[in-house]
Amino acid sequence: MNDKSLIQEFKENLKKRKLIGTKCRTCGSIGVYPNSQCRKCGNASFEKVKFSGKGTLITYTILHAVPLRFKENAPLVIGLVELEEGGRISAQLNASQDELSVGKKLEAIFQEIDGRILLKFKPLGGI
């Protein structure tokens, strides 16, 4: 499958509130946001991986200077999450400052904003 259809499929799945990535058939490395070539081994044949949405916070920031279209939502809490099946994804977090710590267990949520589904993460078991 080419890059376009892989990305389309990833986004279609997000709309259905499903987080589905790729696993390289050659080296087994897992990608969340799709890429047409495996970055590790260069092959281009993938099988699907369905993520549970649970993961660990690797690092984060609270971003005050945001691009124009996010102005209403500033500051944005942004984190890099390692999913329990492998693979990483950066996303906005629904978490207060005192809930933020590296190593924190998180889970995916799908939030509808202006008619589009945004993948976010929140503390596991939190509100």
């Binding site: 971003l63 945001v66 691009p67 279209r69 944005l76 950066s90 996303a91 906005q92 945004l118």
Partner: peptide, 8 residues
């Protein structure tokens, strides 16, 4: 798409 800038 997530609002992530280079400073972030």
């Amino acid at each position: 798409e997530q609002g992530i800038t280079i400073p972030a």
